[in-house]
Every structure is written in structure tokens, then in C-alpha cells.
């Protein structure tokens, strides 16, 4: 109970600072748990399947949709400037540098962040987390470390799938209006794509995965108050993770421009 709850008045600033303080402690505990044995490899693989494999259809559809939308926008804009030859480049750069990573992260934030928040929240209020601890197993290692690592490892791979589907769908949408071979589209589009474009986007998705995993687990394990609390944890996990992903995107783009701009 915070001081102001005792006094009967809400203090948003104090709650906000308390939340960040708890999050910082949670992150420190996470770092320590990641580097100390025992390592829950079997559970990590299970979570990679849950978070990664089962998200594939959703990510593929979202990636394809963003490819089609970018294709339509690119055509509309480039035709106005008489730069139709740049359409493949624009689509591919837009998908790789921003569309693929951010749409994958937001989709995973919704599907996985909410899932982790609800699952751990439910386990918390039904004493399953305590039961794991009573069985002489560290619930932090079993539940948190595995989920966070699975998010970090799977998000770059899912982003590659989204990028692939986005580029393919972008080509298809473009080719339906003006016939163009896939080979020409790819060769032309990738001419200006550099290693740093791919590298920075990949680093970004590692950070996004870390944020989604941490916020989902943190909100889940803070759950209080039965079923309603589980609902709140799930919603908080999605909202906060999505917001953090977008804010982190701003910072990462700025840093990569500073580091890799020619």
C-alpha cells in the first residue's frame, strides 16, 4: 500500500515512480537469473514454439497486408513525381526498415504480450506460482526468463518472415497494376539496401522482443485481485508493451541514423 492510499488520496506521480522502481528491480533480477544456472532449456524451447511458431500465420498475414498498403502508397506517390522506377526500392526499404519490424512487434505485443500477462496473472492469483516455488523450483527462471528469452530470440525471426511476406505481397500488388517480374523487382529494390539497414532493423527487433517479454511477465506477476486483476494485467501488458515498442523505435531509429548515416 502506498502512502497516499493510506491517506485516502491518489498520487499518480508516486504510483508511476513506484512502478518504474519495481520494473527496475525486476530487470536486475532478470539479468541475474539469465546468467546463473540452472537453465530451463526445455521450457525455453516450448516457449519459442508457443511464441514463435504459433505466431507465424498472424505475422505472415500482417506482413503481407503492410506490403500491399506500402505498394499502393508508393505507386501513388512515385507516379506523381515521375519516379516509377523507384517503386521497388521504396517498398523494400519501407518494409525492411520500418514496416516489417514495427508491425511484427505490435502484432506480437498484442498476441504474446497479452497472453503472457493473462497466463502469469492467472497463475499468480490461483497460487500456481507459489506452488512452483513450494516445489523447490525458481518460478522466475521457469516462467519469466524463458518467456523473455523466447520473445528476444523469436522476434527477429518473425520479422524476417513479415519482411519476406511484405516484399512478396508488395511485388504482387504492384505487378497486378503494372506487370513486373519478381526478379527485376528484387534486384532493383535491393540495389540501395545496405547491411546497416538490415542490421539496425534486426537489433531493433531484439529490443522490441525484450520489451514485450519483460512487460508481459512483469504485469502478469504483479496481478492482484482475482479475475478482474487478470484482465487488467493482460490489458496493461499490451498497452504498455506497445507504447514502449513505439517509443523504443524512435530512439533506435535516431541512434542508427547517427551511427550508420553516410
Amino acid at each position: 500500500m502506498t502512502n497516499d492510499e493510506r491517506l485516502g488520496k491518489p498520487n499518480i506521480l508516486l504510483d508511476f515512480l513506484e512502478w518504474f522502481g519495481e520494473l527496475a528491480q525486476f530487470c536486475l533480477r532478470l539479468v541475474k537469473a539469465i546468467v546463473t544456472p540452472p537453465f530451463e532449456l526445455r521450457e525455453l524451447l516450448r516457449q519459442m514454439h508457443e511464441i514463435g511458431t504459433k505466431s507465424l500465420p498472424l505475422v505472415a498475414i500482417a506482413g503481407s497486408a503492410i506490403g500491399v498498403v506500402l505498394s499502393m502508397h508508393a505507386r501513388d506517390s512515385m507516379v506523381r513525381f515521375g519516379a516509377k522506377s523507384l517503386i521497388p526500392t521504396l517498398i523494400i526499404i519501407a518494409v525492411i526498415k520500418e514496416g516489417g519490424p514495427i508491425i511484427t512487434s505490435l502484432v506480437i505485443s498484442g498476441r504474446v504480450g497479452a497472453g503472457i500477462g493473462a497466463e502469469l496473472g492467472s497463475m499468480k492469483v490461483t497460487e500456481q506460482v507459489d506452488a512452483i516455488e513450494a516445489s523447490a523450483v525458481d518460478p522466475f527462471k521457469l516462467l519469466v526468463v524463458t518467456r523473455v528469452l523466447a520473445c528476444v530470440l523469436m522476434l527477429p525471426l518473425l520479422t524476417i518472415v513479415a519482411d519476406f511476406c511484405g516484399i512478396l505481397a508488395g511485388w504482387l500488388a504492384n505487378a497486378l497494376i503494372e506487370p513486373m517480374s519478381l526478379q527485376f523487382f528484387i534486384v532493383n529494390g535491393f540495389q540501395t539496401v545496405t547491411f546497416s539497414d538490415l542490421f539496425s532493423a534486426t537489433i531493433g527487433t531484439l529490443v522490441f522482443g525484450l520489451l514485450i517479454g519483460i512487460i508481459g511477465c512483469f504485469e502478469g506477476l504483479r496481478t492482484q485481485g482475482g479475475t478482474a486483476g487478470v484482465g487488467r494485467a493482460s490489458t496493461s501488458a499490451v498497452v504498455i508493451a506497445s507504447l514502449f515498442v513505439i517509443l523504443a523505435d524512435v530512439v533506435i531509429v535516431r541512434i542508427t541514423i547517427l551511427l550508420f548515416s553516410h
Partner: peptide, 16 residues
């Protein structure tokens, strides 16, 4: 803890 067994009030079975 390995030498202890604990039964929770609501059983706390792992629901998955």
C-alpha cells in the same frame, strides 16, 4: 523445500 510437501487451500494445480 525438497523435504517438504505443501497442499494449498485451493490445490493450486498447474492448469496447463
Amino acid at each position: 523445500r525438497k523435504k517438504l510437501g505443501f497442499l494449498f487451500q485451493q490445490a493450486a494445480l498447474y492448469d496447463s
